[in-house]
Write a protein that binds this DNA or RNA. Structure first.
Length: 532
RNA sequence: GGCGGCGUAGCCAAGAGGCCUAAGGCGACGGUUUGCAAAACCGUUAUUCGUCGGUUCGAAUCCGACCGCCGCCUCCA
């Protein structure tokens, strides 16, 4: 059984059969880079990242194209609307292109943290103006478009399939409240292919119809065609883009090419925050950077980017997901549980006794792999896929208890973590840093001191001086550093966080806080040593 | 107004006609382990799936009505 996906076009779950055997071309609507990425971006791009990763796991040669929209769409559909990018650029006093570049980098930074694999091609809309002009010309030639006053519109009445994706028909929508229809349009549903620019419009290009800029659906048609061909296997995007964006893409592409544009349309559902739609006007907009640093008033703490990823994977991509501080905290705990097990597993692998891998364990791993694949094949049921990770955690921890697992057995378990949890789900890391801040020499001293405490405590414990030993643990606890005792020795936990917090305080120049913090450190050093 | 989705334990969330007296996670509680903790392991935590009807030998799953919530139709992922 192979992969099945839900195709919005047919409203059915279908077997995925690519156009070319063993290959898959995927186009996903990328971000408009006029601001930092937010939770909605995370949901969408993690969802399609899973699709790409899983197709690769299945052996497909995937070409993943995701555009960067750096020609801002207009803020409304009427001709008077301003370009989003231009508006933002004015506000930040930057050239729109500088702004686009800045937010493009920010976007990739955030996506890297979420372990979203980079697209094979990230085409910029601004880099494909000639191709867009060509497509407009072609549509004019074929009679699907008309020019009015230096703008070109797509004539929806000429394309009978218009509405086939979103299940709308043009007549019904006329009744709906539509904002200010441009008087240039023959029909309110017609959409712009090319727009005339006013002299003061910063982003404009020369075209056969005068100076202007491309309409906001055009780039996706042009760039997917250029890099993936006239018909592509999969087009993904957020479901709010079904109409009008994707509907218009279909109209343009199919009218121009006379060929089916997309075989499988996949749409992810939306994000809510505390049960409410996330919207700029609603003040519940959470940026990924705020999530990763904990600097949003709705958040009680910062969250590991991969814990956010895990929360997204806990539900289906076609279901809405509600982000709340409680949900994030729960996901973080679960993520830590998996990470801890993998770290322990890798630490023990080298010390484990030699010998063949346990047949029973190998059998269990096979079974779990089957469960995983079955779930993922079913329109990417990541929730069940993730549950397999927890089965692996339990399996690994049980092996540790028995202590007789061979290195080969542990290695087999680690392989599943690495492939299913790492390569496919993207929540298991290749490497877990111990305490790595090589560029923070002074902090290493602090770590040394912490380690000294651990050693002192070991001595005390051996001498059964439990009161003093508990004190040390408590003191360190006030800095959110935990000591975990085990037969193999004691481990410090939370050092990374401690160091990050410490470094952030210094870097961000919050002197008062930094001072308070270092004082508190000195304080418990003193206390623990029992000196004044 | 048009289109669509959802309502499953304290919370999050799979399941989409019999394998369901319903995965998994978080939380809580009990036990094992530990000097005590933590972590881990074992166990408990929904005889029931918004409500009421219907179809069926059989429904969380299909149909209808109702209640509640959410989204899209306008820039948004």
């Amino acid at each position: 059984m192979g992969l099945k996906v839900y195709n919005t076009l047919t409203r059915k779950v279908e077997d995925f059969k690519p156009l070319a055997e063993g290959k898959a071309g995927i186009y996903v609507c990328g971000p408009t880079v006029y601001g930092h990425a937010h939770l909605g971006h995370a949901k969408s791009y993690v969802s399609f990242d899973i699709l790409v990763r899983y197709l690769r796991y299945l052996g497909y040669a995937v070409t993943y194209v995701q555009n960067i929209t750096d020609v801002g769409h207009l803020t409304d559909d009427a001709d008077e609307g301003e370009d989003k990018l231009v508006v933002a650029a004015k506000k930040e006093k930057k050239h729109p292109m500088a702004l686009a570049e800045y937010y493009t980098r920010s976007y990739f930074e955030d996506m890297d943290k979420l372990h979203c694999v980079r697209p094979d091609i990230s085409p910029r809309a601004s880099g494909h103006i000639p191709e867009q002009i060509e497509l407009v010309k072609k549509l004019l030639e074929k009679g699907y478009a008309y020019e009015v006053n230096g703008s070109v519109y797509f004539d929806v009445s000429k394309f009978s399939d218009y509405g086939k994706l979103s299940g709308r028909n043009v007549e019904d929508m006329q009744a709906g409240a539509r904002v200010e229809v441009s008087p240039d349009k023959k029909h309110p549903a017609d959409f712009a292919l090319w727009k005339k620019a006013e002299p003061n419009h910063i982003m404009q290009w020369l075209s056969p119809w005068g100076n202007g800029f491309p309409g906001w659906h055009l780039e996706c048609s042009v760039m997917s065609m250029k890099y993936l061909g006239k018909t592509i296997d999969i087009h993904g995007g957020g479901m709010e883009n079904q109409f009008p964006h994707h509907e218009c893409e279909i109209a343009q592409s199919e009218a121009a090419n006379g060929a089916q544009f997309v075989k499988y349309w996949l749409h992810n559902n939306m994000v809510t925050v505390n049960g409410q739609k996330m919207g700029k006007s609603l003040n519940n907009f959470i940026l990924l950077k705020e999530l990763f640093s904990g600097s949003h008033e709705l958040l009680s703490r910062k969250y590991d980017p991969l814990a956010v990823r895990q929360l997204i994977l806990q539900s289906h991509y076609r279901s809405p997901i509600d982000f709340s501080d409680a949900a994030l905290t729960a996901a973080q705990s679960g993520f830590d549980r998996i990470s801890d097990a993998v770290i322990a597993l890798r630490n023990r692998m080298g010390q484990a006794p030699d010998g063949e891998a346990d047949k029973v364990v190998l059998g269990e791993l096979e079974e779990l792999t089957g469960t995983f694949e079955e779930a993922m094949n079913n329109d990417m049921n990541t929730s069940v896929g993730l549950s397999v990770m927890f089965d692996l955690v339990r399996l690994a921890n049980r092996l540790f208890e028995k202590k007789d697992a061979t290195g080969q057995t542990l290695k087999a378990v680690d392989e599943k973590f690495s492939i299913l949890g790492g390569a496919v789900l993207g929540i298991v890391k290749d490497e877990y840093p111990q305490t790595g801040f090589p560029d923070n020499k002074p902090l290493e001293d602090i770590i040394d001191k912490f380690n000294l405490f651990v050693e002192i405590r070991e001595l005390l414990r051996r001498k059964k001086q439990f009161k003093a030993s508990d004190d040390i643990r408590n003191y360190l606890g006030t800095a959110a550093i935990e000591i975990e005792d085990s037969p193999d020795g004691s481990q410090l936990k939370g050092l990374d966080d401690f160091l990050k917090r410490y470094r952030n305080l210094k870097i961000h120049g919050n002197k008062k806080e930094a001072e308070k913090y270092s004082k508190s450190i000195i304080e418990y050093f003193k206390n623990a040593l029992g000196v004044e």
